[in-house]
Structure formats: C-alpha cells, structure tokens
C-alpha cells in the first residue's frame, strides 16, 4: 500500500525513537555527570588535603584547614542508632502485618505505616526540634542518666538535641522503607513451607523464626540496605536536631554533625574557594558511599527477584 505522505511516517517514527533514546541516555549522562562534576569541584580540597581529609578532625574555616572525620563520625553514629532501633521494629511490624493481624486490620495499618514515608523530611525536623528534643531534654535523657549512671556514653548535659535524637528521628524515617520490603518478603514465603511447620505443631512465632525468617533472610538484608542508604543521606531532619557542631564525642547526648547537615548548614556561607571545595568533597564522599550501598542493594534485590521468578 502506498500512501501520499511518502516517507513521512518513517521520519516521525525515527524522530520519536531518537528522542526516547536520548531521554533514556540522559539518565546515564546525569549519573556520570554527578561523579565527574563533584570530583572536579573538589579538586582544590583533594590537592591540598589528600587522603588525610578522610581522617582529619579539623574544621577551621578561618585557617582554611578542613577534614571530614567529625562529619563522617556523626553520619555513622546517627545511622547506627537508627538501624539498631528501626530494623528489629520493622521486622516485628512486618510480622504483625503478615502473620498476626487479620487482613481487615492489616491493610489500614500497613497504609498508615507507609504514610510515614510520605511525610517530608523537613516536617520530621520541625517535630524533632520543637517536640521531641524538649521531651528528650526534660524527661528521657535525665531518666537514662539515672538508670545507666556514669557511663561516658550518657555523659554531659541533657540538651535534647544531639546524636541520639538524630538517630531516633532517622529510625522513624527509615522504618516504613524497611517494613515495606520485609512485609513483601514475608508474604512471598510459600504457604506450603509455613503449613508444614504448623502441621508439626509449631506456634506462629516458631514458624516465623525458623521458617519465614530463614526463607526470607536475603530479602530482609536487601531491605536493611535500602534503609541504610536512606538514613545516610537524610538531610533536613538531621540538620534540625543533631546540633551542628564539628566534634567527635563519646556521649550520645553530645551534639555533632553529619555530612549532609554540614552541607545544608554551611554551603551558602562558604566564601573561600577551599572551604567550598572541602564541602563539595564531603558531598562526593556521601555520593560515593550511597552509590555503593544502592548498587549493592539493587544487585542483591534483582538477583533475589530473578530467583523467586524461576522457582515459582
């Protein structure tokens, strides 16, 4: 069949295809660009401080002497606290949603937990700063000091803001992400496996501990990795409650800073080129770390999905 337009339809198809290709390729360009641009903009700082930047605790804008250690310490400390709280809690909530609650209850509860993920970071910051931090200062932290006595971990004045409060807020923020993954993993366990356990007379908890968790362990690890990636790069909520102080203290009550909070606080004030470059290098470190975590998590989860697809 010949059409009056001649080759026009082919041209349109070619154009559309080329445009779609360009848009897909744009994702690659941005990801490569992120790395190249951050690396380029941190060259001043890299030249000047070398690898020592990673473990130097200095942060002196007046003398142009910078190191990432305090920011890395705060990031790691608050993330560890968050994961220690959020992982077990997520597991138990997922257990409730899949095994314990009747479906009619599980659905709205699940929805509510997912809404926690929809609340913007800055709102967690407002709540953390004006509601949680005062509560920590007047009630929680003094009580902890009373119970644990003179441990250096709980030393210092209870100010409310600090590493511990940042960790708590972070825990709440990553909870819905881990819960969602674990819930899906629990729901994927073949009913036959569980029924075999119940047939032997096991209780719900025994089946969960010995069958479901064993079967879904890999998925749980993937979920934990996703949560970890979120926690490490979380910015605004942490900036509100961590205290923004360049120091490394043994106490959980002490104020500190994270990579993201340092960027949020100081970037627009940085006037010296070296200062700016040091901040960009902090960003580069954060980018590389989250990139590695994300890549591992994605590889892990896609491999799992493929395995699940081939067995079912």
């Amino acid at each position: 069949m010949r059409r009056a337009h001649g080759r026009a339809p082919l041209v349109a198809e070619g154009l559309f295809r080329a445009a779609a290709f360009a848009c897909a390729g744009f994702v690659l360009v941005v990801m490569a660009g992120l790395f190249v641009v951050l690396l380029y903009r941190s060259r001043l700082s890299i030249d000047r401080f070398g690898w020592g930047f990673l473990w130097s605790a200095a942060w002196d804008p007046v003398r142009d002497n910078f190191g990432a250690a305090s920011s890395i310490f705060g990031t790691v400390a608050s993330t560890v606290i968050a994961m220690v709280i959020a992982v077990p809690l997520s597991l138990v909530i997922a257990l409730f949603l899949v095994e314990v609650a009747p479906p009619r209850l599980a659905r709205p509860v699940s929805y509510g937990i997912e809404l926690l993920a929809g609340i913007p970071s800055i709102i967690y910051g407002m709540w953390g700063l004006f509601v949680l931090a005062p509560l920590m200062a007047t009630n929680v932290q003094p009580a902890m000091q009373k119970v644990f006595g003179k441990l250096p971990l709980f030393a210092g004045p209870p100010m409310g803001i600090g590493i511990l409060t940042a960790g708590l807020v972070l825990a709440l923020m990553v909870l819905p992400f881990i819960t969602a993954v674990v819930r899906d993993v629990f729901a994927l366990v073949p009913p036959v496996m569980k029924e075999a356990g119940y047939g032997l007379g096991a209780t719900t908890w025994e089946v969960t501990r010995k069958v479901t968790v064993g079967y879904g362990m890999k998925g749980i690890v993937g979920g934990v990795f996703l949560g970890l990636g979120r926690a490490i790069g979380e910015t605004m909520a942490v900036t509100f409650v961590i205290g923004n102080d360049h120091r490394i203290a043994a106490s959980l009550f002490a104020s500190g800073n994270s990579i993201a909070s340092t960027l949020a606080n100081e970037f627009t004030e940085a006037s010296e080129p070296v200062y700016l470059s040091a901040l960009v290098e902090l960003g580069l470190i954060l980018f590389v770390v989250t990139l590695v975590i994300q890549v591992l998590a994605q590889l892990w989860l896609t491999r799992l999905a493929r395995q699940a697809g081939s067995t079912s």
């Binding site: 990801m31 910015t235 993201a260 960009v280 989250t290 890549v295």
Partner: peptide, 15 residues
Amino acid sequence: ANVMMGIPSIIIGLF
C-alpha cells in the same frame, strides 16, 4: 534509574 532514586537529594542540589 533505581540507583538514582536512592541518591540523597542534597547531592542533586550540589550537582
């Protein structure tokens, strides 16, 4: 694209 969704938004701002 999956990885990009997990990159902290502050890094995008920096870029």
